[in-house]
Design a protein around this nucleic acid. Structure first.
Length: 156
DNA sequence: GCCAACGTTGGC
DNA sequence: GCCAACGTTGGC
């Protein structure tokens, strides 16, 4: 099993939204590196940190689980969607998504400042200079360290 | 709202 | 294939 960090702007989709809905397609990924990660390396059953970006404060809000991979992202074909991409066609889809399932909202939100200040988390892609990836792999150690900071009840 | 960092586009 | 211009991300 692999471990991931997935960013979402809470104004668009937050951990509370996922908690209410239970499951959700993770649509709108429009970055090739992030897409390649989900296409090539993400598997059903993987666990991901749910990260709130562009938030006050930004940070990790909880955990979700990957329940399905390699789904064609339908928002790319929708001219009314903010994720519309005229270069993607149903015959030759460019963007894919995964489905995730709510696992847990952390009892304690883990702000970015705390991740930045934590010695053993300094090699996460998240805190490396200039990194803006919206989906990135993380190590089991990073995952467990952040679970601890969030006072998670999950034991992966 | 600012702006640094990075990705993408398109002319050549 | 290079690279300048432009667009986007995302913390602050």
């Amino acid at each position: 099993m692999k471990f991931w960090l997935m960013k979402s702007e809470p104004g668009a989709f937050s951990i509370d939204d996922l908690s209410k809905e239970g499951f959700s397609g993770w649509d709108g990924v429009r970055n090739y590196q992030a897409r390649n990660y989900i296409r090539d390396d993400m598997n059903e059953g993987d666990l991901a940190l749910f990260y709130h970006s562009n938030a006050n404060p930004s940070g990790v809000a909880g955990i979700c689980r990957i329940t399905e991979t390699d789904i064609v992202d339908p928002t790319a074909f929708d001219p009314d969607s903010q994720y519309f991409d005229p270069k993607s066609s149903e015959e030759n889809p460019r963007w894919i998504m995964v489905e995730v399932e709510f696992v847990e909202k952390f009892p304690r939100f883990v702000p970015l400042s705390e991740i930045k200040g934590h010695e053993s988390l300094s090699d996460m892609k998240l805190v490396q200079k200039g990194s803006r990836l919206s989906i990135m792999p993380i190590t089991k150690k990073h995952f467990q360290t952040i679970l601890k900071l969030g006072k998670s009840k999950i034991k992966p």
